[in-house]
Each structure stands twice: as C-alpha cells, then as structure tokens.
Simulated assay, not measured.
Amino acid sequence: MVTGAGSGIGRSVALALAEAGWSVGLAGRRAEALEETASLAGGSAGGEVLCVPTDVADPDGVAALFAAVLERYGRIDLLFNNAGTSGPRGVRFEDISYEDWRSVVDVNLTGAFLCAQAAFRVMKDQTPQGGRIINNGSISAHVPRPNSAPYTSTKHAMTGLTKSLSLDGRAYGIACGQIDIGNAATEMTKRMRAGILQANGEVVVEPVMAAGDVARTVRHMAELPLEANVQFATVMATGMPYIGRG
C-alpha cells in the first residue's frame, strides 16, 4: 500500500513497485490523481493496482482503506507511509495559526500513525505473519529550514514513530524503516528550483534529483527479506545544502 500515491514520490514509488510485480493499493485524497497513477502503471506493470480515495487524517477513512485492500488482496506485506503536506510557506513562527499547525500535524503525524497502526494490526494477525512499514521522513527530520516549524516538528516525530514501530514490531516479524528524502523533483519542490530561503537570509536555487531515484531506494528496502531492515536511509540531491546547513 502506498499513501499519497496521486503525485510526486508516492506516484513514483507506486509505479516502481507495480513494475516489479507488486499488487499496489493506491491511497490519496484526489480520485482523479490516483486514477492517473493507475493509468501510468497499466502500461508496464507486472502487478495490479487498486485506487482508494482516502483522507489519512480521518480514522474512518483509514479503516475503509485497509478494509478495501484486504478485501481485494487478502493481506498487506508493505506500507509506504508517504502522505504529507508542507503546510504554510514563508510564515514566521510567531505568525503560524493554530489551524495551519493542526492541518500539518493531522496529515503528517496523525495520518502516519493511523496508517501504521492499521497496517501493524493486519501484519500481526495475518498468516504468514509480518510485513514491512517504510515511513517517509525528510531531511527535515534532521535539520529545519527557516520558517518550517510545523513540518519539521512532524518529521522529527516521524523518526520517533519509526523507532517505536521497529521495537514493537520485532515480536511479530514487522520491520520498519525510514527514508529521509532531500530535494526530489516534485510539485512540492518547485520553489527550490526558483530559489528558496536559506538560514543566512539568502535566497538560493538548490539542485534536485529525480523522484525515480527515491523510488528505486524504496523498492530496495521493500524487497529485503524480513530478517533484514534498512533502519534509516538518506537519499538527496548531491549538491543540496544539507551537510553544513545552518
């Protein structure tokens, strides 16, 4: 299952998994975007795809998502916990509204928790037991950008969720890892190619990498036997200001 599969990293990962023969449940808010992903997968995929429009911040919606995937496929071997939002841009910390804070936390953290919990329950009870959860962290799980408190806070929290899932899943053959992505070329990173605020106050154009480079890494993580796990992986544009940021 891939959340946030209607665009960007989620779409690239879904296509890579389908091409490798996985049957993939596609989750996301926009039905049309999911159908577009499914159409792209249909051209070269070895596995089938199922579109389930879902708001991951809604517990009932997440329950319906997992029920639909289980009804079609009977088990869940992989969750790529990817759905997320960057939230307000360029808003100073003291000006962040409660509504903007909640909107980011609800999707990036609560949504990730709800999907991970639902996957965990299925993986614990299915036969053969176990499965893998891969969380989409971010470079911001390590270091912030200016004016990014809601997003950065949720991504630091994602690291704690990943570690907790890794520990709590050991007894049930559930492996959990995290991929921290920096400057993949998606709609969310368009501003980096136009120039983005740096810690020293300058606005600088940053290099980006292809989303397919991320998808190949997720596929590698996904295809490991459950006895092996990539706990944390960082995949980033080579020249981006991460090492030395700030």
Results as ranks from 00 to 15, higher is better:
residue 2 V to Q: 07
residue 3 T to C: 11
residue 5 A to L: 08
residue 14 A to Q: 02
residue 16 A to E: 12
residue 16 A to Y: 08
residue 17 L to F: 03
residue 25 G to T: 05
residue 27 A to W: 00
residue 30 R to P: 05
residue 30 R to S: 14
residue 31 A to K: 14
residue 36 E to N: 11
residue 39 S to N: 12
residue 41 A to G: 04
residue 42 G to H: 04
residue 43 G to I: 01
residue 50 L to Q: 04
residue 50 L to A: 10
residue 52 V to R: 07
residue 55 D to K: 10
residue 64 A to W: 10
residue 65 L to A: 07
residue 66 F to D: 05
residue 69 V to I: 12
residue 70 L to Q: 14
residue 72 R to K: 15
residue 82 N to P: 08
residue 92 R to S: 07
residue 100 D to K: 11
residue 102 R to E: 09
residue 102 R to L: 11
residue 106 D to E: 14
residue 107 V to N: 05
residue 107 V to L: 06
residue 111 G to E: 02
residue 111 G to Y: 01
residue 113 F to I: 04
residue 115 C to H: 05
residue 116 A to D: 03
residue 118 A to R: 10
residue 120 F to S: 13
residue 121 R to G: 11
residue 123 M to Q: 07
residue 124 K to W: 04
residue 126 Q to L: 08
residue 127 T to H: 13
residue 136 N to F: 01
residue 136 N to A: 15
residue 137 G to D: 02
residue 139 I to F: 12
residue 139 I to Y: 03
residue 142 H to C: 11
residue 144 P to F: 00
residue 145 R to N: 04
residue 146 P to D: 04
residue 147 N to D: 14
residue 152 T to I: 06
residue 157 A to I: 01
residue 158 M to E: 12
residue 158 M to P: 00
residue 160 G to L: 11
residue 160 G to V: 06
residue 161 L to M: 12
residue 164 S to C: 13
residue 165 L to R: 09
residue 167 L to V: 14
residue 168 D to N: 13
residue 170 R to L: 15
residue 173 G to V: 07
residue 174 I to Q: 01
residue 174 I to E: 05
residue 181 I to R: 01
residue 186 T to R: 11
residue 188 M to K: 03
residue 189 T to H: 02
residue 189 T to M: 13
residue 192 M to C: 11
residue 193 R to T: 11
residue 194 A to F: 05
residue 199 A to W: 10
residue 202 E to V: 00
residue 203 V to Y: 06
residue 204 V to Y: 00
residue 204 V to H: 05
residue 206 E to A: 00
residue 209 M to R: 02
residue 221 M to R: 02
residue 221 M to Q: 04
residue 223 E to W: 04
residue 229 N to Y: 03
residue 237 A to E: 08
residue 238 T to E: 13
residue 242 Y to D: 13
residue 242 Y to L: 14
